[in-house]
Amino acid sequence: MTTAVVFGYSEVGERCLRVLLRHGVQVQLVFSHEDDPSEVRWYRSVAEIARSNHIGVVTPADPNTGEWISAVAQLRPDFIFSFYYRHMLCNELLGLASRGALNMHGSLLPKYRGRAPVNWAILHGETETGASLHYMSSAPDAGPLVGQERVPIRIEDTALDVSLQVAAAAERLLDRLLPDLIAGRAPAIPLDLSQGSYFGRRRPEDGQISWHWPALRIHNLIRAVAPPFPGAFGVSAGRTFRLLGSRYLREPARFPQLAPCLYANDLALYLDCVDGSRLTLPTVQLDGKPLTPNCFAASCGTNVLSLGTLEAVSCDVS
């Protein structure tokens, strides 16, 4: 019987824990996190699936203490798995797995090591990402690679879209590689970190738009942090525009001489950008309240709104 201790959270954690159980791995203990009430939970629960299978669940603030290291040591697991767990595990913990400690990461390593890999990949305009199973080391997302599965990123995909695709890829990848891990014949391919990148955790303030960016850069930021993530926003003359979705249709700006500017017709809101392109904005808030095409005139004036000055400019938007 193959045994494992699992550190897991989020959709990837839930899916990968199910894979271990389907393959008959005896999961001895699950480390997870308490849900943050300020965070919109779009993913299924690792703790719930563990408890439904009569597996003990703990949620320590720090798993790298003597108490928890001792608890894992007493279990003598064959493997330790980390599936989207939010803490780095110390070397002492990693060394307790007699057959290896492995992590599932949401990028094509060595690219986008670190936190929020899906969000960063979209922000940088990548056209693909994926899931990578690798051995853990003292450096984050740096140990030898066992395998990867790729997923495309389409131009309109949001971080939620891609996160769900990556979670499905992680499930398929672990399902494919687990028999080789158990049999002791899985590869361990060193990563060339010079060919990759490392990124830290994104903060809500990282969602701020500069109105002087080109359209594609603004679009990539909007979809990288679209709900259920905190959302992108821009500030002009003390007013906050929160852009919660966009479509990049490669359309020319209607009022390039006034860009950056916002305007509406009966169907949609539009943002003309400084590179001569425009974005369609399906969901916008102004100072925390919905800004729809129908209420644009009442909220912003009847004409084109210059985002540099928040002045209405006399133009025909019909």
Score class of each variant (00 low, 15 high):
Met1Tyr: 07
Ala4Met: 11
Val5Lys: 14
Val5Cys: 13
Val5Gln: 14
Tyr9Lys: 12
Cys16His: 14
Leu17Ser: 09
Arg22Ser: 05
His23Glu: 00
Gly24Arg: 03
Gln28Val: 00
Leu29Ala: 03
Leu29Arg: 03
Val30Tyr: 04
Phe31Met: 04
Phe31Lys: 09
Glu39Leu: 13
Val40Gln: 06
Arg44Pro: 10
Ser45Gln: 02
Ala47Leu: 02
Glu48Val: 10
Ala50Pro: 04
Asn53Tyr: 07
His54Val: 04
His54Tyr: 11
Val58Asn: 02
Val58Leu: 02
Val58Asp: 00
Asp62Phe: 04
Thr65Glu: 02
Gly66His: 08
Trp68Gln: 07
Ile69Asn: 11
Ile69Leu: 02
Ser70Tyr: 10
Val72Asn: 07
Arg76Trp: 00
Pro77Trp: 05
Arg86Lys: 14
Cys90Arg: 08
Gly95Pro: 12
Ser98Ile: 08
Arg99Phe: 05
Arg99Gly: 07
Arg99Pro: 09
Asn103Asp: 10
Gly106Asn: 15
Ser107Pro: 11
Leu108Met: 09
Leu109Asn: 15
Val118Cys: 11
Trp120Phe: 13
Leu123Glu: 06
Gly125Leu: 13
Thr129Val: 13
Met136Ile: 11
Ser137Thr: 15
Ser137Glu: 15
Ser138Gln: 15
Pro140Asn: 11
Pro140Phe: 14
Asp141Leu: 15
Val146Phe: 07
Val151Lys: 01
Thr158Arg: 01
Gln165Glu: 12
Val166Asp: 00
Ala169Gly: 10
Ala169Gln: 11
Glu171Asp: 00
Glu171Leu: 03
Leu174Ala: 03
Leu174Phe: 03
Arg176Phe: 03
Arg176Ser: 02
Leu178Ile: 10
Leu178Asn: 10
Pro179Ser: 02
Pro187Glu: 00
Ala188Asp: 11
Ile189Glu: 07
Asp192Gly: 02
Leu193Thr: 13
Ser194Trp: 05
Ser194Gln: 09
Tyr198Val: 11
Phe199Leu: 12
Arg201Asp: 05
Arg202Phe: 13
Ile209Pro: 00
Ile209Phe: 00
Ser210Phe: 01
Trp211Tyr: 03
Trp211Gln: 05
Pro214Ala: 13
Ala215Gln: 01
Arg217Leu: 06
Ile222Pro: 05
Ala224Asn: 14
Ala226Phe: 12
Ala226Asn: 06
Ala226Lys: 13
Pro227Asp: 03
Pro227Thr: 14
Phe229Ser: 03
Pro230Lys: 05
Phe233Met: 07
Gly234Ala: 07
Val235Tyr: 05
Gly238Val: 08
Thr240Gln: 02
Phe241Glu: 04
Leu244Ser: 01
Gly245Pro: 03
Tyr248His: 02
Leu249Phe: 10
Pro252Thr: 07
Pro252Tyr: 04
Leu258Phe: 06
Pro260Leu: 03
Leu262Asn: 00
Asp266Ser: 01
Leu269Gln: 02
Tyr270Ala: 04
Leu271Trp: 03
Leu286Phe: 09
Gly288Cys: 06
Gly288Thr: 08
Lys289Leu: 04
Pro290His: 14
Thr292Pro: 05
Pro293Cys: 05
Phe296Lys: 01
Ala297Phe: 06
Ala297Trp: 02
Cys300Tyr: 09
Cys300Thr: 12
Thr302Ser: 15
Thr302Cys: 11
Asn303Met: 08
Ser306Gly: 14
Gly308Asn: 14
Gly308Gln: 13
Cys315Ser: 11
Cys315Ile: 09
Asp316Ala: 08
